[in-house]
Simulated scan of single mutants.
Amino acid sequence: MKILVNNKEVETAAVSISVLMEELSLPFQGVAVAVENRLVPRTQWADYVLTEGVSIVVIKAACGG
């Protein structure tokens, strides 16, 4: 299926956020994930079912100020 990750179209077979993060080799720590502009708690990543065309934003934490 095709989804958007940080405004880039991605072809994936992932069925959940957890699987998507592994597939894209993204870290599980120090990041936040929003689906359709709604933050998804890390505890729900494994259960959150992805659908065709969904928009996901992955935000990495940065140090500094």
Rank of each mutant, 00 (worst) to 15 (best):
P27L: 04
Q29Y: 10
Q29P: 02
R42H: 15
I17H: 12
E36I: 06
V33S: 14
P27Q: 04
R38E: 04
E36D: 11
R42N: 14
S18G: 05
E11K: 11
L39V: 05
V10N: 06
L26D: 01
R38P: 00
Q29H: 09
V19I: 04
Q29L: 07
L20H: 04
E11H: 13
E22Y: 03
W45N: 05
Q29E: 15
N37D: 12
P41L: 03
L24N: 03
A13N: 09
Q44I: 01
L20C: 13
R38V: 05
E22T: 01
V15G: 14
Q44G: 00
N37G: 02
V40C: 07
L20V: 01
E11C: 07
Q29W: 03
A13W: 06
M21W: 01
A34H: 02
S25A: 11
V10D: 07
P27V: 03
A13R: 05
A14N: 05
E23C: 14
G30Q: 08
Y48H: 10
W45S: 02
A32K: 08
E22V: 00
Y48I: 02
V40S: 06
V35I: 15
E22C: 11
S16V: 05
S18Y: 00
V19T: 03
A14M: 04
L24Q: 08
F28D: 13
A34V: 00
A32T: 02
W45V: 01
S18P: 12
Y48C: 02
R42V: 00
D47H: 12
Y48K: 07
V40F: 14
T43D: 15
A13G: 06
R42M: 13
V19R: 04
A34K: 09
Y48N: 14
V31L: 13
F28E: 13
D47Y: 10
S18H: 01
S25G: 09
E11P: 15
A46P: 10
A46R: 08
I17V: 05
A13H: 11
N37Y: 08
Q44E: 14
T12Q: 08
A46W: 08
P27C: 03
L20R: 00
T43L: 13
V31K: 14
W45A: 09
E11A: 15
E36S: 12
L39E: 07
L20W: 12
A34S: 09
L24H: 03
E11W: 10
E36Q: 12
A32Y: 00
G30D: 12
